[in-house]
């Protein structure tokens, strides 16, 4: 009986003191009306070298300069790589909130690249729950270096210069700090220099970020090329670095063993060895411009 009295008393006291909160709790019980799509799984459209699952908001233009110095192992004469510079300049535009298209030019191999990335699924909670975000990425890269042909009238077909990359990007923001991404990748090369090299190369990208503060994150971006598809001199691409965000800019500072900044170069043409100090210091600068002024109302 005492127990019951205590409970009753508790009930009354609880009822008297906690009413404000309980009205709020009544609100909490309402079913979620909206679907909340996870935002900012990664800060930028790139983890470091490779694409992240992120796109651009509709009608937003990303002007992007990616830059890699030479290798630390180049030594003091080349100021540990700072004398050399590889650069990619690109314009990337959000056609819709789900579709990103871009074109870029790299001085490495005088390569032009064009790509499209489509968000298929968006991680969400609320009315619709989706555990992961999934994007599909496709790109074409053209190497425009002049060829040293054996005879003056020999020809080298344009199609031989093309490399296609297809990726499925699957990412999950585990919590506000940690995000991970798996990226199965297929690179098709129209032309290979020696016959044992395959035209199709399959790789798996593994990437992640840890947010250190509100505007700084640490990222890792690794691509594993499956079982001896490439030459012995090829290595897997690994990059580590920081994202620093200030308003409309995202700066990415990184170290990587890859020279190129487009899929076909860093996945299938990396030869740098971290152990030997073949490490490039580099940065990506992304500046976003909004052409979207009418949305709100």
């Amino acid at each position: 009986m005492k127990k019951l009295l205590a409970l009753l008393l508790f009930g009354v006291v609880y009822g008297a003191t906690a009413q404000d909160d309980d009205l709020l709790k009544l609100l909490d019980q309402e079913k979620p009306q909206e679907t909340n799509y996870t935002i900012a799984t990664f800060k930028s459209t790139r983890i470091i070298n490779g694409h992240s699952v992120e796109g651009m908001a509709a009608k937003h233009l990303d002007f992007r300069i990616s830059h890699r110095f030479g290798q630390l192992s180049d030594g003091a004469y080349n100021l540990w790589g700072l004398d050399q510079a590889y650069i990619r300049i690109a314009l990337e535009y959000g056609l819709t909130n789900r579709i990103l298209v871009g074109v870029g030019r790299s001085n490495y191999q005088k390569a032009y690249d064009g790509f499209m990335k489509v968000k298929l699924l968006r991680q969400s909670t609320g009315k619709v729950t989706m555990p992961v975000s999934v994007s599909l990425f496709g790109s074409v890269a053209v190497n425009t270096l002049r060829m040293n042909l054996p005879t003056p009238d020999a020809t080298f077909a344009f199609s031989n210069r093309l490399v296609y990359t297809t990726q499925l990007l699957v990412a999950r923001k585990l919590n506000e700090r940690f995000s991970v991404q798996l990226t199965p990748t297929w690179v098709h090369r129209n032309y290979v220099e020696t016959s044992p090299e395959p035209h199709d190369v399959f790789a798996l990208g593994i990437g992640g970020r840890v947010k250190i503060s509100k505007r700084v994150a640490f990222n890792i971006d690794y691509y594993h090329v499956f079982s001896e598809q490439l030459m012995k001199t090829n290595t897997n691409s690994l990059a580590m670095g920081f994202d620093i965000e200030t308003g409309g800019h995202v700066f990415q500072l990184q170290f990587t063993n890859s020279t190129g900044m487009i899929e076909k170069t860093f996945i299938t043409e990396t030869t740098g060895d971290w152990g030997k100090g073949n490490i490039h210091y580099g940065f990506n600068i992304s500046r976003t411009f909004s052409f979207d002024r009418k949305r709100a109302k």
Partner: peptide, 21 residues
């Protein structure tokens, strides 16, 4: 008594970047 709850994510901005920030 009055209770009001405002889901932060539902604020719509003139552009997507602002919304993310």
């Amino acid at each position: 008594q009055v209770a009001i709850k405002v889901p932060i994510r539902s604020f719509k901005f003139p552009n997507g970047l602002m919304e993310e920030h």
